[in-house]
Design a protein around this nucleic acid. Structure first.
Length: 789
RNA sequence: GCGGCGGUAGCCAAGCUUGGCCAAAGGCGUCAGAUUCAGGGUCUGAUCUCGCAGGAGUUCCCAGGUUCAAAUCCUGGCCGCCGCACCA
C-alpha cells in the first residue's frame, strides 16, 4: 500500500555511484559544440568546508547541471588551496600546544591521539583535500574530479603554471619592486600576520609625521598622526624621567627615545647615537614649533607612551584630550612646577587655541569632550582613548581648518592634513616614522613595530592604464547579481599596488628571487586556465605524479595558453608526445573563456577583481571571463556563521542531519544577491516530509501497477511545468525562482511571463490543476479532478 | 569619512530593471477542519481591517513629487547591514 521507505542515504549513494560509473561529469573538449565552464575558487584547506563554501559551490553547480541538461558540454572542476599562512600557522600552533587551535580540531572531530599529527603542515594537506572531496561527493557534486589538484610547490605542474604566470606578468610590466611597510616582530625578526598576533588583529602600518623642534643645533623630534594640528601647538611634552638619545640622522642631530631609534633603523634610516640627555634636563628650555615657527615651552608629562612615537609629544590642547588634561593637571600642580623650576605664571597663561571647526563641537573639541565625559586626570586612560577617537574622527572627516591656520584656513581637514604635511616636509621641518595603527603584540609577547621592506614585489594594480583595460573587461562580464557592478568598478579604481610575495607560508617561490613566496591571493587569479588541462597534468592525483608534467616550462604554457611556439619541440623537451601538447592547446581553446565563477561577496574587493586584472594582463580579450557571481555569508538561525563565533556547520554535519538533497534545497532556498542567505532548518524539515511524501507517491504500487492512469499524465504535466518554469527563470538568471519552483514542483513561480502563475486568492475557487503536494494515494485520481467545479 | 547593499503584512522572503492583471508569490508560524488521526506526519481552508458573500477600507520605512495609475519612477529624510586591503 504505502511505498518504499524513503532511505535517503541509500538513494543518494546509489545515484552518486551511478554518475561516477557513467563518468557523467568528466569533461572532454568537443570542438564545435556549445560548452559551459564554471568554477568556484578552490577553498582553503585549513579544515572541513562548511555551509558557506557549500552555498557558493552550489550556486555554480546548479548552473552547470542546468546547462548540462540543456545540452551544453560542461566543465565543472574543483581544486584545493594550500598556499599561504593559515595552514603553516595553525600547524605551528598545534606544535606549540595552543589550546584554541587544538579545540578547533577537536570540534572538527579529530581524535585526541591524532591531534599531534597536525603539527605538520603536510598532514593538513593530506587530510583536508580528500575530506573535502568526500563531502562534496556526498553532496552530489557534479564535478570532474580528474582535474582536481592542490596548489603550492607540492604540486609541480601547478607550481610551474604559477611561475609561468609571474614571469609573463613581469615581462608585461605588471610586477614591480618597491618599498613596503610591514608589521614586524623585532624578536622573531619576521613580519607578523593577524594569525600570529596576541593582540592587534587588523592593525596595519600607519604613517606618522615626525615634527622637528629646533633647540640650538639639535632638534627634539615628536611624532603625530595629525600634522594639520600644528597650528594649535602650545607646548612640547617630554617625560622628565626618560633618558633620551641624541642621534645623528643624516646631517642633523635629533633628540628622541631609544625605541624610536630602533624603529627608524628598521625603516631604512641610518641613525647613530651620539649622546644622551635626561628629559628633566630639557625642561625650562624653549623650542621653535614647526609649521607656526613660534617659540613654545617644554613641559613635563608622565602620560607619554614610550613605546609609541618618539617619547616626545607636541601639545595641541584644543583638539587632543590628552594634552588638555595634562596641561590642566600641570597648571594646578605647583609642586611639580616648582620641582622643575618652571615659571608658574607662564605655564598658567597657556590656553588652547582653536584651529578646527568640528561638526558637533564648539571651537575647542579637545576641551569639550573632556568636560562632557567628566575626565578628571590623565590616568583615566580608557576614557581618554575614547575621547581621542571621537574627536579625531569627527575632526578628520567633518572638520574644516579655521582662520588661525594661515594659508590652510577654510580647507577640509581631510585635505589639509596632506597639504600641511607636504609643506612641513618642504620646509625641512618634518620627517616620517611608521607605527602600527594600533598596538600589536606578537605571539612571542613582543610588541611589534613597523619595518620597511626594501625589495617587496607588487602586482601593479595601481597602474592607470591597466585599470582602464580592466574596467573595459568588466563591462563585458555578466554579473550575478547585477547590483555588484558599481562595487567592482569602484574596487578597480581603489586598488593599489598589491604586495604579492611573502617570506613565510606555503606556496610557489618567486621564480626570479626565490627567497620570496608568492602570496595566496596572487597565485590563484587565473587558476581556471589550469583546469582546462589539469586532467592530463594531474593524472588523477592531487599532487601530480605524471613524469612529463614535472618538467613543464614557460614554453609549454605559452604554447597551450597562447599558441606560441612549436608543439613538437616542446613535447620533445618535456618528453611527451606532440599530440598530447596539441590536444591540451585544443582543450584550452575549447573551454576558455570561463563562463561563470561564483564566490562569496568578500572576494569582490580583492580576489575576484584580481582575476579580471590578471586576465586582462595575460589573455586576449576573447578569453576574458564572461560571468562572475557573488553570494553572501550563510547565516544559521539568523546568526552569521563563523569559526570564531563557534556556530559553524560543516557540510558533513549538515549532511548527517539532512542528507544531500535537503542540504542542497536548503542552500538553494537560502537567499540570493548581496544579502546574507539564511539556512532555514524549519523549512528544510518541512521539505523533508514532503520529499518522503513524493517518494511514497512515486513508488507505491510501482511494481504492481501496469495501467496508465490519469494521475500519470498529471504527474508528467507537473514535471513539465516545473521544467518550463526553471528554464524561463534560468534564462532570466533569476536563480532563486528556479530553485523554488523546483521545490514547488509544478506550481508556477512568478518570474517569467507565461509561467503558470499561482491563482490569486480570489481565483482559488477554480484552482487545482497542480496541487503542490502529491495525492496521498495512487488510486486517487480524484485529486486531478478535485476542484474542477 | 569613502564605497556598496538594503528597509514589503507575526517572522523569513519574492516583486522593484520593463508603473496597471498587486491586498501584494512562496515558506515558516498561527487558527479551524479532514484523515480507522495516540504524538508526529499528511491533506483542506483561513491568516491587514470590516462584511455571510458580492464588496468596502487602509497598506509595501517616512515626507513630498511625477502619472489616468506607484511597492515599483523622481527628490529629500530616517533607520539597518557589509567592506575599507596586502589576508584567506
Amino acid at each position: 500500500m504505502s511505498g518504499a521507505r524513503y532511505d535517503r542515504e541509500k538513494i543518494e549513494a546509489k545515484w552518486q555511484r551511478a554518475w561516477a560509473r557513467a563518468r557523467l561529469f568528466e569533461a572532454r573538449a568537443k570542438p564545435g559544440t556549445k560548452k559551459w565552464f564554471s568554477t568556484v575558487p578552490y577553498p582553503y584547506m585549513s579544515g572541513y568546508q562548511h555551509l558557506g563554501f557549500g552555498i557558493a559551490f552550489l550556486r555554480a553547480e546548479f548552473q552547470s547541471r542546468y546547462r548540462r541538461m540543456a545540452g551544453y558540454n560542461v566543465l565543472h572542476p574543483q581544486a584545493f588551496h594550500c598556499t599561504g599562512l593559515p595552514i603553516s600557522g595553525a600547524a605551528r600552533r598545534v606544535a606549540q600546544g595552543d589550546r584554541l587551535q587544538l579545540d578547533i580540531l577537536r570540534k572538527m572531530g579529530v581524535r585526541e591521539r591524532d591531534l599531534k599529527k597536525f603539527a605538520d603542515p603536510l598532514h593538513w594537506i593530506e587530510v583536508f583535500p580528500p575530506a573535502t572531496i568526500e563531502d562534496l561527493k556526498a553532496l552530489g557534486a557534479a564535478v570532474d574530479w580528474r582535474r582536481s589538484f592542490i596548489t603550492t610547490d607540492l604540486n609541480p605542474p601547478y607550481d610551474a603554471f604559477v611561475k609561468w604566470q609571474f614571469r609573463r606578468l613581469r615581462e608585461g610590466g605588471y610586477v614591480r619592486i618597491g618599498k613596503h611597510p610591514v608589521i614586524w616582530c623585532p624578536l622573531d625578526l619576521a613580519p607578523i600576520q593577524d594569525h600570529d598576533r596576541l593582540e592587534g588583529e587588523g592593525e596595519t602600518p600607519a604613517e606618522f609625521t615626525l615634527l622637528k623642534f629646533p633647540i640650538g643645533d639639535k632638534a627634539l623630534v615628536a611624532a603625530t598622526i595629525r600634522p594639520e594640528t600644528v597650528f594649535g601647538q602650545t607646548n612640547l611634552w617630554v617625560d622628565p624621567e626618560v633618558s633620551y638619545v641624541e642621534a645623528r640622522v643624516g646631517t642633523e642631530t635629533w633628540i628622541l627615545n631609544e625605541s624610536a631609534v630602533a624603529k627608524l633603523r628598521e625603516q631604512g634610516r641610518s641613525v647613530e647615537e651620539v649622546g644622551r640627555v635626561k628629559g628633566s634636563e630639557l625642561l625650562r628650555s624653549e623650542v621653535i614649533a614647526p609649521g607656526i615657527n613660534k617659540v613654545i615651552p617644554i613641559l613635563p608629562a608622565k602620560f607619554i607612551d614610550q613605546a609609541r612615537g618618539t617619547g616626545i609629544v607636541t601639545s595641541v590642547p584644543s583638539d587632543a584630550p590628552d594634552d588638555y588634561v595634562a596641561l590642566r593637571e600641570l597648571q594646578r600642580d605647583d609642586a611639580t612646577m616648582a620641582r622643575y623650576g618652571l615659571d608658574a605664571a607662564r605655564v598658567r597663561a597657556i590656553s588652547p587655541l582653536p584651529i578646527i571647526r568640528t561638526p558637533g563641537f564648539g571651537p575647542l573639541p579637545g576641551v569639550e569632550i573632556v568636560e562632557r565625559l567628566g575626565i578628571q586626570n590623565s590616568s583615566e586612560r580608557e576614557a581618554l582613548t575614547r575621547a581621542k577617537e571621537e574627536v579625531y574622527r569627527s575632526g578628520f572627516y567633518g572638520g574644516v581648518m579655521n582662520e588661525n591656520c594661515g594659508p590652510f584656513a577654510g580647507m577640509r581637514v581631510e585635505v589639509a592634513k596632506d597639504e600641511v604635511k607636504r609643506q612641513l616636509h618642504e620646509n625641512g621641518q618634518a620627517d616620517v616614522l611608521w607605527e602600527p595603527s594600533g598596538e600589536v603584540i606578537c605571539r612571542c609577547t613582543t610588541r611589534a613595530i613597523v619595518k620597511i621592506v626594501e625589495d617587496q614585489w607588487f602586482l601593479a594594480y595601481g597602474d592607470p592604464e591597466w585599470k582602464a583595460r580592466t574596467h573595459r573587461a568588466l563591462d563585458g562580464i555578466t554579473l550575478y547579481p547585477e547590483a555588484v557592478r558599481k562595487q567592482f568598478h569602484h574596487t578597480i579604481d581603489w586598488l593599489n599596488d598589491w604586495p604579492c610575495t611573502h617570506h613565510k607560508g606555503l606556496g610557489t617561490k618567486l621564480p626570479w628571487d626565490d627567497h620570496w613566496v608568492i602570496e595566496s591571493l596572487s597565485d590563484s587569479t587565473v587558476y581556471m586556465a589550469y583546469y582546462t588541462i589539469a586532467h592530463a597534468l594531474q593524472g588523477g592525483t592531487l599532487r601530480s605524479q605524471v613524469p612529463w608534467a614535472q618538467r613543464l616550462d614557460d614554453e609549454f604554457f605559452d604554447y597551450v595558453f597562447r599558441g606560441i611556439g612549436d608543439a613538437q619541440a616542446i613535447a620533445k623537451r618535456v618528453r611527451t608526445t606532440k599530440a598530447t601538447v596539441e590536444g591540451l592547446r585544443r582543450e584550452f581553446e575549447y573551454w576558455y573563456p570561463l563562463d561563470l565563477r561564483h564566490t562569496g561577496k568578500d572576494l569582490v574587493q580583492n580576489h575576484m577583481t584580481f582575476c579580471v586584472f590578471n586576465h586582462v594582463a595575460l589573455f586576449p580579450e576573447s578569453q576574458w571571463p564572461k560571468g562572475l557571481g557573488v553570494v553572501g555569508y550563510v547565516a544559521l538561525g539568523g546568526r552569521k556563521m563563523s569559526k570564531s563565533r563557534g556556530n559553524v556547520w560543516y557540510l558533513r554535519d549538515a549532511m548527517k542531519a539532512f542528507g544531500a538533497d535537503l542540504v542542497r534545497i536548503g542552500l538553494a532556498y537560502a537567499g540570493d544577491g548581496l544579502d546574507d542567505p539564511s539556512f532555514d532548518t524549519d523549512f528544510v524539515e518541512s521539505i523533508q516530509g514532503r520529499l518522503q511524501d513524493w517518494h511514497r507517491f512515486a513508488t507505491s504500487r510501482a511494481r504492481t501497477r501496469t495501467k496508465t492512469l490519469p494521475i500519470d499524465r498529471w504527474f508528467m504535466s507537473a514535471i513539465n511545468r516545473a521544467i518550463q518554469c526553471s528554464s524561463k527563470s534560468r534564462r532570466k538568471s533569476s536563480r532563486r525562482s528556479r530553485r523554488t519552483s523546483r521545490k514547488r514542483f509544478g506550481r508556477g513561480g512568478r518570474g517569467g511571463g507565461s509561467c503558470p502563475r499561482r491563482p490569486t486568492r480570489r481565483q482559488s475557487q477554480r484552482r487545482s490543476t497542480s496541487p503542490r503536494r502529491p495525492p496521498s494515494d495512487t488510486s486517487a485520481p480524484r485529486s486531478t479532478t478535485r476542484g474542477r467545479s
